[in-house]
Simulated scan of single mutants.
Amino acid sequence: MTSAIESRLAELGVTLPDAPAPAANYVPFVITGNTVYVSGQISQSDGSLITGRLGDSLSAEQGATAARACAISLLAQLKAACDGDIDRLVRVVKLTGFVNSTPEFTDQPKVINGCSDFMVEALGDKGKHARSAVSAAALPLGVAVEIEGIFEIS
């Protein structure tokens, strides 16, 4: 049987990639009870990093595209945490987004909207969540965005 969530993603032209492997001494997710904590996912697409600094080399729109890429990686990790059955998702609980930005840049929420909007577009009401969007002076490997997530599963 086809996953309802993956069918919706296919309608949006998205196929979940394999979950990215951790780059250091940590695990990609932790499950406690019915809660999955997914480690920060950096902005990358098709194996290439999306790098740059908002307010300098990237616009808020380009940042939102980077944040959408983070959303796809978050869902890939969630699918792995659910042993391949992403339909176990009950809801997205909270997202915390970090934006590589200049001190003058103040549109971090517009950037993280790229992730938030995708979650709701792909998941409907299950995708509605609490959220933080904060500036960072630098992010790993020079990426534009990093986002971590908390999810409730059945």
Rank of each mutant, 00 (worst) to 15 (best):
Asn113Leu: 11
Ser73Ala: 15
Arg53His: 08
Ala23Arg: 14
Thr51Phe: 07
Val30Lys: 09
Val99Leu: 11
Asp117Ile: 12
Ser73Asp: 07
Ser73Tyr: 15
Ile86Met: 04
Pro103Ile: 09
Ser39Val: 11
Leu95Pro: 06
Ser43Pro: 03
Asp18Ser: 10
Ser57Gly: 00
Ile86Val: 10
Ser43Phe: 08
Ile31Ala: 07
Ser57Val: 02
Val27Cys: 04
Ser45Cys: 14
Asp107His: 08
Ala21Asn: 05
Ala66Met: 04
Ile112Gly: 02
Leu16Ala: 00
Ala19Glu: 07
Arg68Trp: 11
Val14Glu: 02
Asp83His: 12
Thr51His: 03
Val30Gly: 15
Thr65Leu: 15
Phe29Arg: 06
Tyr26His: 11
Pro22Tyr: 10
Gly84Val: 11
Thr32Lys: 15
Asp107Trp: 14
Pro20Asn: 06
Phe105Cys: 04
Asn100Ile: 12
Ala80Trp: 12
Ile50Gly: 07
Pro28Lys: 10
Lys79Phe: 04
Tyr37Arg: 09
Ser59Pro: 00
Arg53Cys: 08
Glu104Ala: 08
Ser73Gln: 08
Ser43Ala: 02
Asn100Tyr: 14
Ile42Met: 11
Ala19Phe: 11
Gln77Pro: 07
Gly97Lys: 00
Phe29Lys: 01
Glu104Leu: 13
Ala24Trp: 08
Val111Arg: 03
Leu75Phe: 01
Leu75Trp: 14
Leu58Phe: 05
Ala81Pro: 13
Lys110Leu: 08
Arg68Asp: 15
Thr106Tyr: 11
Gly33His: 02
Val30Pro: 14
Arg68His: 11
Val38Lys: 02
Thr15Tyr: 03
Thr96Arg: 06
Asn113Ser: 14
Gly55Lys: 02
Ser116Glu: 05
Ser45Thr: 08
Val99Phe: 11
Val99Ile: 05
Ser101Thr: 13
Ser45Gln: 07
Leu16Ser: 02
Leu49Met: 05
Gly97Asp: 01
Val92Ser: 04
Ala67Trp: 00
Ser59Ala: 00
Pro20Ile: 14
Gly114Ala: 00
Gln62His: 03
Asp117Phe: 06
Gly47Met: 07
Phe98Gly: 06
Ile50Tyr: 13
Asp107Ile: 14
Asp46Pro: 05
Thr35Gln: 12
Ser39Gln: 11
Ala60Glu: 15
Thr106Glu: 13
Phe29Trp: 09
Leu75Ser: 02
Asp56Asn: 09
Pro109Trp: 13
Ser116Met: 12
Gly63Gln: 00
Thr15Asn: 12
Glu104Ser: 15
Asp117Asn: 00
Asp83Glu: 15
Thr51Ile: 12
Val14Ile: 06
Leu49Lys: 07
Ala60Phe: 05
Ala76Trp: 06
Ile112Gln: 15
Thr96Pro: 10
Asn100Val: 05
Ile31Glu: 13
Asn25Leu: 13
Ala80Met: 15
Asn25Gly: 01
Gln41Trp: 03
Gln77His: 12
Gln62Asp: 08
Ala19Met: 02
Pro103Glu: 06
Pro28Cys: 12
Ala19Ile: 10
Ser48Leu: 05
Asn25Tyr: 08
Ile112Met: 14
Ile112Arg: 06
Leu95Ile: 09
Thr35Tyr: 03
Leu54Tyr: 01
Thr65Val: 15
Asp107Gly: 05
Leu95Trp: 02
Ile72Cys: 04
Gly63Trp: 00
Thr32Val: 02
Phe98Ile: 10
Arg91Val: 01
Gly55Glu: 03
Cys70Ser: 01
Thr32Trp: 08
Gly114Thr: 04
Ile31Pro: 09
Arg53Gly: 02
Val38Met: 02
